[in-house]
Nucleic acid binder design. Sequence first.
DNA 1: CCGCGCCCGACACACTTTGTCACAAAAAAC
DNA 2: GTTTTTTGTGACAAAGTGTGTCGGGCGCGG
Lengths: 238, 238
Amino acid sequence: MQGSPHILIVDDHREIRDLVARALAKENFRVSAAADGRAMRKVLSDSRIDLILLDLMLPGEDGLALCRSLRAESNIPIIMLTAKGEEVDRVIGLEMGADDYLPKPFGSRELVARIKAVLRRMPGGAAAAPARAKRYRFDRWALDTGARELLRDDGVTVPLSTGEYDLLIALVERPQRVLSRDQLLDLARGRSANAIDRSIDTQVSRLRKKLERDPGDPKIIKTVWGGGYVFAPDVGAE
Amino acid sequence: MQGSPHILIVDDHREIRDLVARALAKENFRVSAAADGRAMRKVLSDSRIDLILLDLMLPGEDGLALCRSLRAESNIPIIMLTAKGEEVDRVIGLEMGADDYLPKPFGSRELVARIKAVLRRMPGGAAAAPARAKRYRFDRWALDTGARELLRDDGVTVPLSTGEYDLLIALVERPQRVLSRDQLLDLARGRSANAIDRSIDTQVSRLRKKLERDPGDPKIIKTVWGGGYVFAPDVGAE
DNA sequence: CCGCGCCCGACACACTTTGTCACAAAAAAC
DNA sequence: GTTTTTTGTGACAAAGTGTGTCGGGCGCGG
């Protein structure tokens, strides 16, 4: 994990979201918020989240169901929040795969302490989430996430640096979506952008040089003027 | 065991985890904590644990079940902790394969004494009852954990030093996962890293020289810039 | 159609991280 | 106790990444 951890708070009460967001921002965490399961999934697909604070009681799909479905596809650490301070909930929460449990009302000091404790015991971090090796196909390329290799259809392996690989993964997993530099920086490097950050531009340039037929007229990573970049080709996953 | 022993406390009560962690840290043990079976397995797969303190009563999978499943795949010493001071539990616990048994409440002095006692009778013990010999296969290699030998598919045996072997095992058992130098040092050497520790780098370099076709362009042990190393190939166990 | 301001591509350079070698320290073998 | 092997450390080279600059392209308003 390079930058400061990115925490997602999922709670339907605006006051709680704001409160938690302020408390965490003060501790130098990056914070996003979502009011329900749908918003949560949106945030998860738009940015790289290191830890989720999940309210047990939510409108629509409730916290436990969300927790279970999150666990099915990733291993982002989860801390459950709940109003009912009953032991039963704690047990249920931990069984669903939550990493810790915090009864409301809680002080910001305690919240921060729990978050740090949970993050500390996640050595690989959330970045290690896709435990399963995949192979993506696009254009004339195949990207193997297990071996971290980029293969051209003529069989040649093109070496990618770590940064190029991370950026390419972020793009390939979100094809045909405009991604801002800020998002890409978050997804690929786990940090947020400084005012005059051009590092993504440079990295895109280097990537294009490796995978475009004509880097001067890119067909794969296209520029959206004033917006960011789009991964243009269709991606087939295996 | 090279560095200070690494103890894992598994208990769902945070107060107990903290208490025990403090007591052990004071005695110069390294300590990790887990709230349930899932967290326990995560810690076990991320670091090298010398002894487990296991609470009998846990949410989800309970202590006895965990103890039994641990015994099935390793022989890490286990001390069972339990609130019920009944003799029955002791018998059951020891039958399940626990190495000792400590009724709550216990003083930190007694805890430390028991731990040291169990660890003292390990050195021969752990080596004397090694986990079943396995044979890992990857790329064009086979790694035999019984004979501690590395065999190339043309039949040649490549000699590995103890350190090279330990490092390779740490990597082979966690394929396609990014492992930090700190983790590798813990897994392979049982100690934690100093600020400017480069010993893992040299050891990786030596390993590559032995098992990569082209050590200058490694396909097996890959570098993650700013992150650590990844064991890239698929590993088949036998 | 033209000029202006802003955004992006490319390159050079500084800085950080990693590879590797030689050598010393430590451990193991003899 | 000596020799041999292995492991850690320091130094330097190589690679990867981010920042600054320059110049060209894009959108916008006239």
